[in-house]
């Protein structure tokens, strides 16, 4: 009896349509969690607002980067990336949690597409990140931030920040699968982001770093992507910086997406 496959109401369980349907279902799951898990709500609301206010008022008086009138015009693109990166660490926590609780075993025993658990998580992160970016932009506007290069460039800046978020989500998804323990995944994620953020152009111009650090800071993907978002916000020739940022994002995805999916297909709860 193979009634299952022939059962009325069942559909073809393969192909692109099936993959997209699975991703939509998993995205829905994660969006539900997003509004119900207290830490996730905090990561998506309180934290981004705090970042904008704290960095502006605590550091804005002391730091005067070149090329901008107000510090918030310089800092906001970096704060975008910081908030998205911190939020993405929760993706590592969630994936490790799904692994230890047996959720991934359950998903893997279903006929669903093998990349949908990770892709659906990433898609939900994208929605959350769009919300976080708009929230931070609103708060920043209230304290003096302005886009200086027009609406299209502003939309491109948000789009690029979202693309950085996609790369972050896959990196942390992979980390969660490798580390397996939710707490370690969370702490490990933050420990990876913090040095990268502070050795980049996020808060201060790279030119202020000691020479040996400048060399690293210039190739730091955070610098590359933050600079590209910043130039879209404050204006100026942007094409080359955007190209470099997209190259970094593409390279990171080219490694992490297949690595994470392969890992997912082999992993089981212990």
């Amino acid at each position: 009896m193979t009634a299952t496959t022939a059962h009325a109401g069942f559909r073809r369980l393969s192909g692109l349509g099936w993959l997209l349907a699975n991703i939509a279902t998993v995205t829905g799951r994660n969006l539900h969690r997003l509004v119900r898990v207290p830490t996730l709500i905090a990561f998506a609301t309180v934290q981004p607002i705090l970042f904008v206010l704290l960095f502006n008022y605590a550091w804005g008086g002391a730091i005067h980067p070149p090329g901008v009138q107000r510090y918030i015009d310089y800092a906001l693109p970096g704060i975008y990336v910081l908030a998205i990166g911190f939020g993405a660490s929760q993706t590592g926590v969630a994936i490790a949690d799904d692994l230890t609780t047996g959720m991934i075993d359950r998903f893997r025993a279903l006929p669903m597409a093998r990349s949908a658990v990770l892709a659906g998580r990433t898609a939900a992160d994208l929605v959350r990140n769009l919300f976080v970016l708009l929230l931070m932009t609103t708060v920043a506007y209230a304290i003096g931030f302005r886009f200086h290069a027009g609406l299209a460039a502003a939309a491109a800046a948000i789009g690029l920040a979202l693309a950085v978020g996609v790369a972050f989500s896959w990196i942390f998804g992979l980390l969660g699968l490798l580390v397996r323990d939710p707490e370690s995944a969370g702490i490990g994620g933050l420990l990876a982001i913090i040095p990268l953020i502070f050795t980049s152009s996020t808060f201060v111009a790279v030119a202020t770093f000691p020479g040996w650090l400048q060399a690293f800071a210039k190739i730091n993907p955070i610098t590359v992507t933050v600079d590209a978002i910043r130039v879209l916000c404050v204006g100026g020739p942007a094409a080359e910086q955007i190209r470099q940022a997209l190259a970094w994002i593409g390279a990171l995805l080219a490694v992490t997406v297949p690595a994470a999916v392969i890992r997912y297909r082999r992993t089981t709860a212990t």
């Binding site: 193979t2 496959t5 898990v37 047996g102 959720m103 359950r106 709860a269």
Partner: peptide, 17 residues
């Protein structure tokens, strides 16, 4: 995977759904 059902060693349900 189309013909099986699995209830693993630990109840695997999404606590927030």
């Amino acid at each position: 995977r189309r013909v099986i059902g699995l209830s693993g060693q630990y109840a695997a349900v999404d606590a927030y759904l």
